[in-house]
């Protein structure tokens, strides 16, 4: 038998690695808890009904309230409305285009065109959001001669599109081929089989992908800075500048008079994003293909 003089050391190393892995893994939870804790503790006091239903106070109102020691008036309703409207417009375009494109990629897999599209989709997914901001500025803001909620929607659309395409494509790829064959064997036409059998079967996963895409773009600030710009009044008009919750946090961060509104807005955004995230995961588990 081969004798091992280092057995003790080996066992020690093995133990050590185990402990290191556990300790450092546990440490990664700290930032999450710290961020959640801080936002919750600081933001909790600011949340109220008026905070969600009133627009941002102007600088004068804010200054008066500060010097008088009153609670800050107003809230983030303009941002909530803006986020909702821009997201809705972006999603209405991105969902059908993304699903059709995803079907196309999975159906024409291996074809040169599909391969090219697939690589560019990856490229778009990895493009820094600030670049999307610049590009929409060039494409929409300059020709329309002004910042607008619509420009913000276009930016969010470009950000959502690759995420929806990927989730659709991946789901369609793992659906059994026999499902499609069974539909066609009944004499169903191709488009009916795709839209009435394949897409509904994949719907759970695609829906998860859509929720995750929304939760990703809802917190985006950079692509909105030079597109939607922001605005102090509650506005439903997408041809005018519009605010969004993350955009407001950025404004509050830069305006010494409004700093006390930061944490309430952050708490709202964080709660929304993380709940959407958890919901998506839940659905994914339940509706697994």
């Amino acid at each position: 038998m081969v004798r091992d003089k280092n057995l003790q050391i080996r066992i020690f190393k093995n133990r050590l690695l185990y402990i290191v892995v556990c300790v450092f893994s546990a440490l990664t939870a700290i930032p999450l808890l710290a961020i959640l804790g801080e936002v919750l503790v600081r933001g909790w006091k600011q949340l109220s009904w008026t905070f969600l239903t009133e627009a941002t106070p102007n600088a004068f109102e804010a200054m008066m309230a500060m010097s008088a020691g009153d609670p800050m008036p107003g809230g983030i309703a303009n941002g909530i409305v803006g986020t909702f409207v821009m997201l809705l417009v972006a999603a209405v375009i991105a969902i059908p285009v993304g699903i059709f494109c995803g079907i196309c990629l999975s159906e024409f897999k291996g074809n040169w065109f599909a391969t090219v599209v697939s690589y560019i989709t990856d490229l778009l997914q990895g493009t820094p959001s600030i670049i999307i901001g610049i590009i929409v500025y060039i494409w929409v803001v300059v020709p329309m001669k002004g910042y607008s909620g619509f420009a913000g929607s276009v930016a969010l659309f470009i950000m959502m599109l690759p995420l929806i395409i990927r989730s659709t494509e991946e789901t369609m790829n793992i659906l059994p081929e026999t499902l499609k064959e069974a539909g066609l064997a009944l004499g169903g036409s191709y488009w009916r089989v795709m839209l009435q059998v394949m897409v509904p079967s994949a719907f759970g996963s695609i829906f998860t992908g859509i929720l995750l895409a929304i939760s990703r773009v809802i917190g985006e600030t950079a692509p909105l800075m030079f597109t939607a710009l922001g605005g102090a009044a509650i506005s439903w008009n997408i041809s005018r500048p519009m605010s969004a919750v993350p955009l407001m946090i950025w404004e509050f961060f830069n305006d010494p008079n409004l700093q006390s509104l930061i944490w309430g807005a952050s708490l709202f955004l964080l709660t929304f994003v993380l709940c959407l995230n958890l919901l998506a995961k839940r659905i994914q588990k339940k509706w697994k293909v």
Partner: peptide, 24 residues
């Protein structure tokens, strides 16, 4: 549980990371 933690970390908007970095 740990994957959920990292998933949530990935989900936090970057502006909130910025705030936390700045104020904490």
């Amino acid at each position: 549980i740990l994957s959920t933690v990292t998933d949530l970390l990935a989900g936090i908007p970057s502006i909130i990371y910025g705030l936390w970095g700045f104020y904490t």
